[in-house]
Amino acid sequence: MTYRVGGLGEPATFDSGASLLITGESALTKQRLFDAVAPEANERTVVITADSGAETVVDELESRGASRDQLGVIDCTSTESDVEGVPVRQLNSPGDLTGLSLEFAKLLDDDPDRVRVGFSSISTVLMYAELRTMFRFLHVFTARIRSGGMLGVFSMDPGMHEEQAVNTIRAVFDAEARIGDDSADLRGMRFAQ
């Protein structure tokens, strides 16, 4: 089973269970992340957001063809939102990783077959969590994504961190898409392009 992913230049097909890191300036990666997690007909999408509110997330995905019953949002931005027809879980802090994983588990309690997971962004959460904690969290999260045959799409802005931290986080992922103004350079494994 595979997931077709747009927004990365050439269309790409990812193996189910794969996790992709999208790197670049956050304004650019945000749009690419929405492109990549927009669900197809038989899929669900859960977005964990620490930078755009739930309403923005739902708008962006609807404009990419998603219907509300396909979506779920874990909102760590501390903004009030009222999105009818979409389960939105609020978290007080992006650094509450246990709360985040619990809400994620609850949103997928019915064990759906095909799920795209968006995480925007690692950079924001890294302001609240230590690098070591974040690395280990991402490692366990991507293991859960692999085990469930889902697709994981995470974004990070390398300009916000030390090069060493960026390289450490990179080691968690199967593939990386480096996003420039008009370019996307995809490398790694578990995909075909």
Binding site: T98, L100, S101, L102, A105, F137, F141, A143
Partner: peptide
């Protein structure tokens, strides 16, 4: 070796492991 150690991971297991990492 990590893949061999835990080839599958359920939701509740995921939550427990994240809790351990944070704690």
């Amino acid at each position: 070796r990590i893949d061999d150690a835990l080839p599958s991971m359920e939701n509740d297991e995921f939550v427990a492991m994240v809790r351990d990492i944070e704690g």
